[in-house]
Amino acid sequence: MSQQASIDRQEYNITAYTENQVGLLNRIAIIFSRRKINIESLNVSPSEIEGIHRFNIVINETEEVVGKLARQIEKQIEVLKVYYNTNADVIWQEMALYKVPTDVIAEKAIVERLLRENGARAVVIRKDYTVFETTGHREETDNLIRVLQPYGLIEFVRSARIAIIKASDGFNSKLREFERREPSTEPAENEYLNSRDKVFTM
């Protein structure tokens, strides 16, 4: 890898809308592994339209590589649409859960204050432990680990990243359109050719 390439690398958020199909996760995952690219974070969940799933994939790469990967993903038969964005172009969040002994919280008022300062919210309170939840960027959820560590943090888990694209008009209307027109034989759109370097689509 050249030095320039390492400088140009940054986190990219790839958003893919797909059919809900067995095996598709593998088909998409091997597009990365074949090129020895590590997936930093992966979230797959149902979109607002039944039967259509949304992938959020985070990788560290140059724009050139990300653009090519996005096209390779969109080429898969069951993929409807792919976008890619830098962190600056998206609003993103990760959710974290922290399990802490309940007696510590009860005894030490400072802990409760720290939790409040970090925007944590109790989800389950039991006699033996309490589970708190926060959402935020990596540094924020990391920070609370550090804060809770001295007070007997029992277990921690963080979700994959989910991201909403700032500039885009969203895919909601297009998804609804897909649903309404089905089956349609018309190719849907060709935005990539309108602004080749900004939007990705075929």
Binding site: I77, P183, S184, L193, M202
Partner: peptide, 17 residues
Amino acid sequence: CTHIRSYRPVPIVRPEY
């Protein structure tokens, strides 16, 4: 089969290009 909604085998031809 003549159509799969997530699959566009032939891109639209753009006259400007």
